[in-house]
């Protein structure tokens, strides 16, 4: 372990984090993970589960990206190359969840429909693949 502390500072370029920083970050990561798991198991926290978990995991994400992936030290270009797709990815995630959420509430078959729901729906669409795989329907 003396190796680590001795190496610190001496050889690193000025803009690189040192071994101590790495260890501190690792400690943070572990603590944050432990907090996440704790939040999961504490029932009292269930109502705020989602926001708390998002904040905690977001913090972990940021720590790894900034320190282990050196974005904090590498200038705006690489941060941009990462941040923009990340932004797009987030938009994609949120909009798909929203769109399908709407579909689940409004597009579902309406049981109150007063038309007789009789056998005329043969539900070919329900056919799952395996049974039909070898058979050629037409």
């Amino acid at each position: 372990m003396s190796e680590i502390s001795a190496a610190h500072d001496v050889h690193d370029p000025a803009n690189q984090p040192g071994t101590t920083t790495y260890l501190i970050i690792a400690a943070f990561l572990l603590v944050l993970t432990a907090m996440e798991v704790t939040v999961f198991y504490v029932h009292a926290l269930r109502p705020v589960l989602v926001p708390v978990l998002i904040v905690l995991s977001g913090a972990k994400f940021a720590l790894v990206a900034m320190f282990y992936m050196h974005l904090k030290y590498d200038g705006w270009l690489l941060s941009g190359v990462f941040a923009f797709p990340l932004f797009i990815a987030t938009i994609l995630l949120l909009s798909l969840i929203g769109l399908f959420g709407y579909l689940a509430h409004h597009g579902a078959p309406n049981p109150e429909l007063n038309a007789p729901r009789n056998a005329s729906l043969s539900w070919k669409s329900l056919a799952s693949t395996p049974a039909y795989r070898s058979a050629s329907p037409r």
């Binding site: 429909l113 038309a115 007789p116 005329s120 070919k124």
Partner: peptide, 21 residues
Amino acid sequence: LEIRVIAHQWWWDFQYPDGIK
């Protein structure tokens, strides 16, 4: 007037509330 329209490959099925098909 609420009517069910059910599409099949390749024809249409119309069902009225009073049982007309």
